[in-house]
Amino acid sequence: MSSASNDIVDFVRTLYPGGAIVPLHAPCFDGREQDYVRDCVASTFVSSVGAYVDRFEQMVSAYTGAVAAVATVNGTAALHSALRLVGVQPGDLVITQPLTFVATCNAIAYCGASPLFIDVDTDTLGLSPTALSAYLEQHAERREQGAVLKSTGQVLRACVPMHTFGHPVRLDALVRVCEDWGVALVEDAAESLGSLYQGRHTGRFGQVGVLSFNGNKIVTTGGGGMMLFEDAAMARHAKHLTTTAKLSHPYEYVHDEVGYNYRLPNLNAALGCAQIEQLERFVGAKRALADRYRDFFLDSEYRFVDEPAGCRSNYWLNAVICEDRMARDHLLSITTAAGVGTRPIWQLMNCLPMYASAPAGELANAEWLADRVVSLPSSPRVEDMP
């Protein structure tokens, strides 16, 4: 096992030579980032009003094929807003997966709602429509106010799958389950910009899709998020809600609902515009990197996490599945000591103190994966860019 772990260190250093530390994921700025940011500063419109915000929204909408896109200050703010827009209220339940980043559940908590944890599929690492359907058939019922949990009467208001490491969940089946039960689908596509499910961009299968542009994402604005919409009226409401719900007026401050100061600054959007111009190059580079990793791990004791059938994954983070938790911890220890940035997958959300009492189904797959998944250095390599 030690020899195999050292082989991984040597291989990663052939991919990223020259540095003492190989980060898990670093941004790439070799486009027009500095030009656009300088132009934004010169314009003096550096806050949430400015031409680059509109341009960035239009570019993301055009790239993904969404009817409209609304930028926010970060992905968590986008997800919180999306849940508000689909009607999540205090006391509701929101279906999600335990194997996710904590922001998914935090956004649910901001609404005064609680997560309901459903197991994942081991090939997609994301919410299992089979597990969800089985749980609902056993534990939920349809009432006048919608689908409710029989044991508590709480409304199952929304479902939030997360496309882990950029690998799409089984969206067609998940859409059918949500439609059958009358549950709103909000995609946490924070990690999957550039990923396609059956030829269609992730984030476009539910009422709202959410993207993230954090510093470690495939495209970054330093910090930022985006909501994708197929409904133009909902998009207009989203922009209103995230701009403190302020009504247009020549000089008065008039607000008609509780809103949020969630708009993306123009300065961040300027950076994002330059990044979006290069997105297909980044996706190409990351898929080329995935090819290298896949070949390397082909006959090893580790299983490479590959894209699901019928999908194009952006491979935001490449990852392997280890034999067991001991093997996982050994790999993490060896690589970290050698300056190679690897990470375990997140601790399960139902194991965190603030979500430990949330309702949950059987979580065998999520528990199995949490003991075994290690993510690997995945920065886009300039030499791989088409």
Rank of each mutant, 00 (worst) to 15 (best):
V9K: 08
G19F: 03
V37Q: 03
Y52S: 06
R55M: 08
Q58G: 11
M59E: 08
S61L: 02
A66C: 03
A68M: 05
V70P: 00
A71T: 02
N74F: 09
A77I: 09
S81K: 04
A82L: 12
L83I: 05
D92P: 00
C111I: 07
T124Q: 08
A134H: 05
L149K: 09
V160N: 01
M162G: 14
H163S: 10
R170P: 12
V175Y: 05
L196T: 12
I218W: 06
E230Q: 14
M234D: 03
K239T: 14
T242K: 01
T244Y: 04
T244H: 05
Y253F: 10
V258Y: 04
A270N: 05
G272V: 13
Q275N: 06
Q278H: 15
Q278R: 15
A290R: 11
E307V: 11
A309M: 04
G310C: 12
S313V: 02
M326R: 12
R328K: 15
L331G: 01
L332T: 03
S333Y: 15
S333F: 15
A338P: 00
T342R: 07
L348S: 08
L348H: 13
N350Y: 15
G361Q: 01
A364H: 09
W368I: 08
L369T: 02
V374R: 09
L376H: 10
